[in-house]
Design a protein around this nucleic acid. Structure first.
Length: 154
DNA sequence: GCCAACGTTGGC
DNA sequence: GCCAACGTTGGC
């Protein structure tokens, strides 16, 4: 059981979109470090969904890994924005996992507030210039964020 | 919409 | 194998 954070631009695909669909193949990851994280994911792993490129970027809710990593079909499709001519069917370069909706937080846990949490001091998430769209979350980071949203409900 | 920071590509 | 050029990410 591991925890992850996955970024998405809500203009392209938001947590609400995930909620509407129930689950979604998380395709289009074209960064080797992020891909390696995908490959280490297992069904049942927890995910924080993070909205980027918005006025208040931050964690907006939760999802769950519901498949093992498998080849991302968009890499083989010449008409796809994510097509990769350097990849082949017998040696796929890019993977995806299926992600299922779990929960929307009543209030976004903003990047600004994450920066002020000691739990996130060492996270790549708060480092300037960080572009990783998938990154690991520690148990203490997970629990701390959850404690904030529980408090929020009272 | 700007642009700093970063990862990738390709010429040499 | 270096590194300049390029494309992309994502905060602001």
């Amino acid at each position: 059981m591991h925890y992850w954070l996955m970024k998405t631009e809500p203009e392209a695909f938001s947590l609400n979109d995930l909620q509407a669909r129930g689950q979604e193949p998380w395709d289009g990851i074209r960064n080797y470090q992020a891909r390696n994280f995908l490959r280490s994911m297992q069904p049942g792993d927890g995910i924080f969904i993070y909205h980027s490129r918005v006025a208040v970027p931050g964690i907006v809710g939760m999802a769950e890994v519901v498949s093992n990593a498998r080849p991302d079909p968009t890499q083989f499709d010449p008409h796809s924005h994510y097509y990769d001519s350097g990849s082949s069917l017998d040696k796929p370069r890019w993977d995806l996992v299926d992600v299922a909706y779990r929960r929307s937080f009543t209030q976004c846990i903003s990047l600004d507030s994450l920066r002020n949490m000691p739990e996130f001091a060492d996270s790549p998430l708060v480092r300037k210039g960080n572009r990783l769209s998938i990154l690991p979350i520690t148990k203490s980071q997970w629990q701390h964020v959850l404690s904030l949203v529980e408090d929020d409900r009272q």
